[in-house]
Design a protein around this nucleic acid. Structure first.
Length: 650
RNA sequence: CGCGGAGUAGAGCAGUUGGUAGCUCGUCGGGCUCAUAACCCGGAGGUCAGAGGUUCAAGUCCUCUCUCCGCAACCA
């Protein structure tokens, strides 16, 4: 123990659905970092958990015919089971429905209110249930939620707001003074330029539209909205107390060394969360790392695309450690990675079976054959031995260095450099030749000793990433558990007897795998189908009936496109000059991704002639043209060629 | 000109302060037999997106252009 503490957290998982492999990745990544720090002698505290409040959960529980509590108990249990299953070594699994968490959050809210950082106001706009977000009229997409496409409702509610702008200058200063605070670096400018510098909006921190949440202690109509509730978990878990009686854990571990989160919620963690802490007078976390996403092939995983992969499906085929290995080794540091079965197959056979597994196996076999499974004492060293030792020590140093900056994939690569070099060492020293003559016995002993020593090094370095595999290697070689900080070449004890040989990773046949993949997916999908359906069907897709009088209010008319040009500084907009049979008009339409100006000029279209004009990107649009949403990002303009301009439509 | 990132062998990526372009996979050829048809060596394959500039020297610095991505804006 070197007396240094290390507090790491993951984002808490929303308990609306079972996490897919991309979500699981975050937990495994945090686990690898936590284990590595522990092996280095840090006093580590690793927090993960679930975010269990909100309207979406309330609605979903209702749809399932159970209480919200029963719903979140089930999902949280499932998430925790997966984490355990993946060998995630968290110290605490916090749930935002824990009474201790809820009490502290109420106190935090009250304190912020009492000191004037939170005030009462009202919120007006369009509300999207699934996203639990308000949108202004201009944010809507075809009258629907711009994020998820669901129908929105006009709503207004009394709400509490957090005065964000007050702390913006201090936050900007903190970000500039602490260059490592936001990682990867590219995100830092994004936050500063897009949000902080243009001016922060006050944040709405309460809701009255649902009640599955933590009540505001002094105003029971209100429930504390996600930000204060969820983000606070990082300190409530440690027993923070706004009244100044924080617990031992808090005093010991806060501030967090790393908040590991998905890149999508970086904004909340690098702006709202630090500001909350400043308001509370609490020290800010040292680093927020927004890790990239794991995509399926080229696509983002999503249920609607039907390409969701669950960690357990992969584990069924490759095992826990191979799945961990793949996630940790294949994901780049700053850009999105992709999951494909071909890739994991290549990694499995190439890295795990051939390079690692085979090395462990052949060395074990030689020790058995030449020394009756007893670790021989080394003799005099040769240049080749020194070289191997140097590579081992460099792998250790490099891995430590890479892990400092959370370059996990690179750290793993460092270990494989050692493994490759060790395989090469066997070819260079040819133990089977040495074994032929009694004269070269001492040399053979040295070679075997060095091989086992190299494997011992690798096993120690591997342990944070592949804990189970490392343990199996130690068992086969009868090695004690070793830390990383204390790892020293030559500390391997001679004279001990090896354990039983065991295949670490059996090679997988490509064809057989393809069949298994299909089988696992079929089974999973069948199992998941019924429960998956329930929450999705709750959204009514229909539009209310209107009578003929309503329709008569809409003036539809044919117009001919005379000219068309892109709107400057707008990606999606085209400016159309139309002959509508009268004075002519200009319409701006968001069809640039699908149509070029020359595709449209000369054609006739149907327009809504009496729509209130609006200014889009500085250009006034006097109406809209009709286009069909042909699904899956395909928009088609409805042409009315041949019909005279100005004809009205009923 | 809204902010930022990226364009390097068939694929996926490294290339720190400018000094012979590298790694893994794949491919072709060879070696070895301790081992999981594994392991080791070698070859082929790159005008480092394009154009200009600074320099004795540019993947690396400067300017411009093109393409892709993230965020923001935007879809009457």
């Amino acid at each position: 123990m070197n007396g240094k503490k290390f507090y790491i957290t993951t984002a808490i998982v929303y308990t609306s659905k079972v996490p897919h492999i991309g979500n699981t990745y975050e937990a495994v990544l945090a686990d690898a970092i936590a284990r590595f720090r522990r092996a280095q002698g840090f006093d580590v505290y690793f927090l993960t958990g679930t975010d269990e409040h909100g309207q979406k959960i309330q609605d979903q529980a209702k749809a399932e015919g159970q209480t919200p509590q029963a719903h979140v108990d089930a999902v949280a249990g499932e998430i925790r089971r997966i984490w355990d299953f993946m060998n995630v070594s968290y110290d605490q699994f916090i749930r935002t429905t824990n009474s201790s968490h809820m009490e502290i959050v109420q106190k935090i809210f009250k304190k912020l209110y009492d000191q004037g950082d939170i005030y009462q106001g009202s919120y007006e706009g369009y509300y999207c249930k699934p996203c639990e977000s308000f949108f202004t009229e201009t944010q809507l997409k075809d009258g629907c939620c711009p994020d998820c496409g669901a129908k929105v409702e006009r709503a207004s509610e009394e709400a509490y707001f957090f005065k964000m702008s007050k702390y913006a200058p201090a936050l900007e200063q903190y970000i500039l003074d602490n260059p490592d605070f936001i990682q990867p670096e590219s995100r830092k400018n994004e936050m500063l330029n897009n949000f902080i510098r243009p001016g922060l909006q006050d944040l709405c921190v309460s809701r009255t539209s649902f009640d599955w949440g933590i009540p505001v202690s002094f105003d029971s109509k209100h429930v504390i909205y996600v930000w204060i509730d969820a983000l606070s978990n990082y300190i409530t878990a440690l027993g923070y107390d706004p009244d100044g009686n924080s617990g031992e854990l808090f005093n010991k571990y806060w501030p967090a060394n790393v908040h590991l989160i998905g890149k999508d919620i970086l904004r909340f963690h690098t702006i709202y969360w630090p500001i909350m802490l400043m308001a509370l007078g609490v020290e800010l976390p040292k680093q927020v790392f927004g890790h990239p996403w794991m995509l399926f092939g080229e696509d983002k995983m999503s249920k609607s695309k039907g390409n969701v992969v669950y960690a357990e499906q992969v584990v069924k085929l490759f095992g826990v450690d191979a799945t961990r290995y793949y996630m940790l080794r294949e994901m780049p540091f700053a850009s999105d990675g992709s999951f494909t079965y071909e890739q994991i197959m290549t990694r499995y056979n190439g890295d795990l079976a051939n390079i690692l597994g085979n090395l462990v196996s052949r060395t074990h076999a030689m020790t058995l054959k030449y020394f009756d499974s007893i670790v021989p004492a080394p003799g005099e060293g040769a240049p080749l031995d020194d070289e191997l030792r140097a590579v081992a020590e460099k792998a250790l140093a490099d891995a430590v260095e890479d892990m400092k900056t959370l370059h996990v994939a690179d750290a793993i690569d460092d270990i494989w450099t050692l493994l490759r070099r060790t395989n090469k060492y066997i070819d260079e020293t040819t133990p089977w030749t040495l074994a032929k003559s009694e004269d070269s016995r001492p040399r053979l002993a040295t070679v075997i000793y060095n091989l086992i020593e190299s494997i011992r090094f690798a096993a120690a370095l591997l342990a944070p990433f592949l804990p189970d595999t490392a343990a199996r290697i130690r068992a086969q070689y009868n090695l004690p558990e070793a830390g990383i900080e204390t790892l020293a070449w030559g500390a391997l004890e001679a004279g001990t007897t090896l354990g039983t040989a065991e295949t670490l990773f059996a090679r997988i046949d490509e064809k057989a795998l393809a069949e298994q993949v299909a089988a696992v997916h079929a089974a999973e999908n069948e199992k998941k189908e019924p429960e998956k359906k329930a929450p999705e069907t709750e959204k009514p897709e229909g539009v209310a009936m209107i009578d003929i009088a309503d329709f008569a209010k809409v003036s539809l008319r044919v117009a001919k496109i005379l000219a068309c040009e892109p709107v400057p500084k707008a990606k999606k907009l085209l400016k159309l000059t139309l002959d509508d049979g009268e004075v002519g008009r200009t319409i701006v339409s968001g069809i640039a991704p699908w149509y070029k100006p020359e595709d449209l000029i000369g054609h006739s279209v149907i327009i809504v002639a009496n729509l209130k004009p609006a200014v889009l990107r500085g250009v006034e649009s006097q109406g809209m043209l009709l286009a069909a949403d042909a699904g899956d990002n395909d928009v088609r303009v409805i042409f009315a060629d041949g019909i005279p301009a100005g004809s009205s439509i009923h």
